[in-house]
Design a protein around this nucleic acid. Structure first.
Lengths: 120, 120
DNA sequence: TCAATATTTCAAGAATTGTTGTATCATCCG
DNA sequence: CGGATGATACAACAATTCTTGAAATATTGA
C-alpha cells in the first residue's frame, strides 16, 4: 500500500453513493451484484451509477466480471485490510514507546475481524 | 458509528494534504504537534492548513488542545478502529455462510494491530 | 502597554467532482 | 437478421471543494 493508493481509496468512499454501493457489496458477499441490481437497490440512475462504479473499480475496492451483457461487481475486502495496516503501521512500528495512548487500536482485532476469523 | 460519521471520515482523508496531516500525527503519537509544526513539516501555508485541520477535527479524526497561543493536534486512533468495524461488521454478521471468500480479512489482526497489541 | 507571534475567519476566485441526457457498444432472444 | 436490453462513453452544466490573501483574535514577552 502506497500513499496514492490509500488516497484513491478514501476518495472513492468519500461519496455517499459510492459508500452505499461498497457497503451493499460488502453486505452481499462473494456472490456480488450486477450493475442493474445495484442501481435498483440504491435508486441511482444507470449513467450515474456507472460513473461511481468505475471510480470504485479503479481504486480496486470492487472487482468486475462480465457475465454476458451483465457486469457483476464484488467488494474487494482484503484491500480495506491493507489500508488499515498502512494507516496504523507507522505509529507503533517507529516509536513503540509513544503508543501508550493508542493501544485501544487492539480492539480492532475483535471488533472488525472477530467473526471472520472465527470461520477460518 | 453511523453512515454520516463514516462518510465524514472518508471525506476528511480524501485530500492529500489531510491524509499527510493525519499520517504525520499518527506517526508522532500521543504527544501530537502544534499547528505551526505541522505546517513546517508539510510545507502547507497557515491559512490552508487551518482549513484542513478544521475538517479533520470536525470529523473527529484529530483532537485539539489549546496551549497558550498554540493549538496542539493529536490523531484519534480509536475512531479509525471504529470505522473498520463499521465497514466489516455487516459482511460476516448478517450472512456468515457467504464470507468464505473474504476471510483474508482476518489478516488485519496481525498486520494492523499486532504491534499495538503486543504492548498491552 | 505595545509589538510580535500563532492561529483562525472570511471572502473571492480557481479547480475539481458530481449529475444528467444523448449516443454508442455489445449481448441476448425472437 | 433485427429489435430489445444492460451497461458504458462522452459532453455540458451544476455543485462542491480547495487555495489564497487580507483582516481579526488571542496570547506572549519586552
Amino acid at each position: 500500500m502506497d500513499k496514492p493508493t490509500a488516497l484513491s481509496i478514501f476518495e472513492s468512499l468519500s461519496s455517499a453513493t459510492r459508500l452505499d454501493v461498497y457497503r451493499l457489496l460488502v453486505k452481499t458477499g462473494p456472490e456480488g451484484l450486477v450493475a442493474g441490481e445495484i442501481g435498483a437497490a440504491l435508486e441511482v440512475p444507470p449513467t450515474n451509477l456507472s460513473f461511481h462504479l468505475k471510480a470504485l473499480a479503479h481504486a480496486g475496492l470492487v472487482s468486475v466480471a462480465q457475465e454476458g451483457r451483465f457486469q457483476r461487481y464484488r467488494a474487494n475486502m482484503p484491500l480495506m485490510v491493507d489500508l488499515i495496516a498502512y494507516l496504523t503501521a507507522e505509529c507503533c512500528a517507529g516509536h513503540p514507546e509513544q503508543c501508550a495512548g493508542v493501544t485501544e487500536a487492539g480492539a480492532c482485532v475483535d471488533a472488525a475481524c472477530g467473526s471472520a476469523r472465527a470461520m477460518q
